[in-house]
Every structure is written in structure tokens, then in C-alpha cells.
Design a protein around this nucleic acid. Structure first.
Lengths: 147, 147
DNA sequence: TCAATTTATATCGTTCACGATGCAAATATA
DNA sequence: TATATTTGCATCGTGAACGATATAAATTGA
């Protein structure tokens, strides 16, 4: 069968695409009460690690384009989570910093990763199998990130 | 460190999310010439396996909601790839079938999975490691799919 | 120093993804 | 059989993603 390759079952990408969507869905019960989305949570993770970063740095750490991150940050600014100030050395830059609300959310969010781990353990009985994917995913991301 | 869990590096979901996006990006050179997107390609895969399916069946096979698939199919109908006819037994259903153009595209697309495998081999040196993720991803999807 | 190029961000248009809601047809139940 | 519920699909609104394009500031180079 010449078309065997076209079967959905054979596709790795389809599984990544589906697993990513469904996994993001499991964050809903934890992020909805905070009034944020998953990509916004990722931006907060980046800023909690280091406050006051230009748009480009945030975008790079998330492997996103600035034309995705800019509107994301605008919505987050509107929601009072971040401020966007003009850069002092380089005025083209927009330095993104956390507001008090954005800083405070760290405390509310700190249990989310453990909760998600628990969800995955509940699903699978054991976590190890999923943790074992991490280096492979990193390899894939590393290989694909330069265009 | 109480916040150690909140480091981006620790997150599995972030890797799935990123790997999925970047992998979908590698389809662009193959799908752009056909004038279709990755989700549209997935719909075609489903219909190439079995033509004439109601919206619900397509949505289920892709783990998507009908409110995602309906507009997708409307765009594909506009592009002349599929037709959407009222069901005969159950008139609530919309039976989606391939047009000649949609059928013909199967031939043009049949090398895409091999091309993608080659891309991944080029990145990694070997394919096995990625293939080994498949059962784990299936387990994850299986566990998450019932909401 | 002044024009050319690069860089940082923003804007626009299109396509998902999905929660919420609507509606008509089919099915179940009283 | 009349009413209630469920089912299948569609519509609407919002928030990503991302290609293409724009714009102003910084940098390079003649």
C-alpha cells in the first residue's frame, strides 16, 4: 500500500499536536481562577525567573516571535500583570516588568507544577515515562529552533 | 527554594507545546505548495482513510471540538477540497466528502510523511528516539481525552 | 557625517482552538 | 402522542500563532 504512510496513526507530529493541546487543557482549572491563559502563564514564569526583560528576550525564551508576544504582553498589561516601559539605553526596546499583581501571582501559582504532576501520575500510574520524554523533546526543539 | 517548581526548565508541557509548534512549522514547505494548513492536512488524512464522514467523526478522530472543525471544513469547502452534504438518515448530520481536487491531493501528499521523517533524522542522526515517544504520547492522549 | 543597513517592536490579516450559546432534528419519556 | 431531553452542527467572541509589512531607533560603512 503506497499510501500507508499517510495514515494518521503513523504520525508523530499529530501526537505532539494533540498531546500539547490536551495537556494545556489540564492547566485550565488552575489558570482560570487566576484569570490568565497558558501562554500568559509562560510569560509570567519567564518574568518570575528574571524581572525586567525586553520583549525579544521573552520571545526567545518561549521560542515565539515578537509578533505573538507583543499582543500577549499588551493584554497582560491591560490585565494589570505587567508594565511595558521604553528602554533607557536602547529606546527601541520595551522593557517588560511585573506589577505588584504580577509578583503576587507567583505565590498563588507555585503549586501548579505539582498539581500538574499529580494529574499526570493519576493518568499513568507513574511519572517516569513522561519525564523520560524530556531530553528527546529538548533535542527536537534544539534541532528545529533555528528556522 | 520554594519557587523552584516554577522554573520554565522544569515543565514538560512547555516542551510539548514548543515541540508541537516547531514540528508543525516543518510541514510548511510541503503544505504551502498544496495551499493547505496542517489542521487541514489532518482532515484530509482522515478523509483519505475513509471518505464521507459526518463532522462529529472527523472531530473525534482529531480530538477536536466541532466548533473548531466546522469552520475548518467551511474553509476547505471554499477551497474546493471537500463537499458538505446533508445526511440522509439523520438530517442534522453534515456528511463531508472529498472532491476530485481533494482526492487528487492524496497523490501529491503521499511523500510528506517520509520527508518529515528525513527532516527528523537530519536533526537527530537517528529516528528511533523519537519513535519511542509515540506510545508515551498515546498514553498521555488516552488519559487526557475524556476531558 | 550622512546614507544604507540592521534591529526592536508594532500592526494587520488569516487561521486555528475553544468556551458559551443557539437551533433544529432526533430520541426518550410520560 | 405530546413534551422533555439529547444530539449534531453552527455561530460568536476571545486569545493565540505567525507571515507580511511598517516604523523608528541604532549601527555600519563609505
Amino acid at each position: 500500500m503506497a499510501y500507508e504512510q499517510l495514515k494518521l496513526d503513523n504520525q508523530l507530529c499529530f501526537r505532539l499536536y494533540t498531546a500539547a493541546r490536551l495537556t494545556m487543557g489540564t492547566y485550565h482549572p488552575y489558570l482560570d481562577p487566576l484569570g490568565i491563559t497558558y501562554p500568559q502563564y509562560l510569560v509570567l514564569l519567564v518574568l518570575w525567573e528574571q524581572d525586567k526583560q525586553p520583549v525579544n528576550d521573552i520571545a526567545h525564551k518561549l521560542f515565539l516571535e515578537t509578533n505573538t508576544v507583543t499582543p500577549l504582553l499588551q493584554r497582560m498589561e491591560k490585565a494589570g500583570l505587567v508594565k511595558r516601559a521604553k528602554g533607557k539605553e536602547d529606546t527601541r526596546q520595551r522593557i517588560v516588568s511585573l506589577t505588584k499583581k504580577g509578583i503576587a501571582m507567583r505565590e498563588q501559582a507555585k503549586h501548579i507544577p505539582d498539581c500538574l504532576s499529580d494529574e499526570i501520575i493519576k493518568i499513568s500510574g507513574e511519572e517516569e515515562e513522561f519525564v523520560r520524554m524530556i531530553p528527546t523533546l529538548d533535542k527536537l526543539i534544539e534541532g528545529l529552533k533555528q528556522q
